[in-house]
Design a protein around this nucleic acid. Structure first.
Length: 350
DNA sequence: CTAGGGTTAG
């Protein structure tokens, strides 16, 4: 559009910023920020709120905060954007403090604020805080019908805090249940290792006419992996394909994890060879973790070499490797680790 | 045209 000589307006920029946020494209996002200045849209609340959205989604919290701070009178959307953004990036205390600050300024929290705050509380596994918020939600809606998205956030929060019973209560009280609400409970069962409950709830969900999604299957595979249910995992893969859902790297990683956990490294490698895409360092980390459990140092060294050739490799991988190398990898290999200074290895080793 | 829900493993 710009090549045709058409200047962007607020709408163009707002839509593009959303796309940048969703894909984590910070460099284009910054360019759009400049466009806002060029087009003299700096005071426009839509443009400004969209900038906050884009920067938080791209992980540039300082930049988002800077813009928020400069606003003359941030509206509820500005507050919610910054609160959700901080919560999403794990800046939980900051998100909670901002919600408090917002209310001190006389703005009432709405459902969106609540969802952001619940996310922060879930991240912190702050059960008591979550209970208080739940009570607050309950009293604030007169007909006692909780908003579906708030309910989903509550179920997720209770599950992350380890309280399945409260999660079930919230879930059961909802008259309309969509597939995301169901999945939040299923994922909770998976996270807490309740495989029987998970399979029951999965059947029940289907009986209610809701279709499983790729995320549903990921929860099922996850629980199989932790419980060591290899055959169940294989049949889940088949069922998935029957629904026309192609297993992606996350699903296959569950399978690799399952095989590695039981020491079946050859099978794990066979799965990797059949991958349509190159294994990521994340998959190598999974295998590496199991090398440690099975004390196989030769394999660990091979896997290490595969992983460092991934340009996306992150420091977390080196943490796994460095824990392991202190146990049984040779000193010579420590040198290889150190030679990775300058990549993300340095931050984790120092 | 701006804000909110579920996503493996280590």
């Amino acid at each position: 559009m710009q090549k045709l000589g058409i200047s962007p307006n607020v709408i163009t920029i707002v839509c593009s910023l959303k796309a940048c946020g969703n894909t984590g494209n910070l460099s284009v996002g910054k360019k759009l920020h400049m466009d806002i200045i060029v087009e003299q849209l700096e005071g426009n609340p839509f443009a400004t709120n969209s900038l906050i959205y884009m920067y938080t989604k791209c992980g540039s919290l300082d930049e988002a905060w800077h813009i928020f701070e400069e606003m003359h009178s941030p509206d509820i959307i500005s507050w919610n954007s910054i609160i959700s953004g901080f919560a999403e990036q794990g800046e939980n205390e900051r998100a909670l403090a901002l919600s408090k600050q917002m209310q001190e300024q006389g703005l009432l929290p709405d459902n969106t604020t609540l969802v952001g705050v619940l996310k922060a509380v879930a991240n912190m596994e702050a059960f008591e805080h979550g209970r208080r918020l739940h009570a607050q939600v309950f009293h604030s809606c007169e007909d006692q019908s909780i908003d579906l998205i708030v309910a989903t956030a509550l179920v997720d929060m209770y599950c992350k805090c380890g309280s399945i019973v409260y999660a079930q209560q919230v879930f059961n009280k909802m008259e309309t249940k969509d597939y995301v609400l169901w999945t939040s409970l299923l994922t909770g069962y998976a996270q807490q290792g309740y495989s029987d409950l998970l399979f029951q709830a999965y059947d029940s969900m289907k009986a209610h006419g809701l279709q499983p999604t790729a995320v549903t299957f990921l929860s099922l595979l996850n629980v199989c992996s932790h419980a060591g249910l290899i055959n169940s995992a294989y049949s889940i893969l088949e069922v998935m394909c029957g629904y026309g859902i192609e297993p992606d790297i996350k699903h296959l990683n569950c399978i690799v994890d399952l095989l590695g956990r039981s020491g079946q490294f050859f099978l794990a490698f066979a799965v990797l060879e059949r991958l349509p895409i190159k294994p990521t360092y994340i998959i190598w980390s999974t295998i590496l973790g199991h090398c440690r459990n099975h004390s196989i140092s030769e394999l660990a060294q091979y896997v290490f070499e595969c992983a460092v050739s991934d340009e996306e490799v992150e420091s977390a991988f080196f943490v796994v490797m460095s824990n392991l190398s202190s146990e049984f990898v040779s000193e010579e290999y420590e040198d290889v680790l150190h030679s990775c200074y300058g990549t993300s290895a340095s931050s984790s080793l120092l």
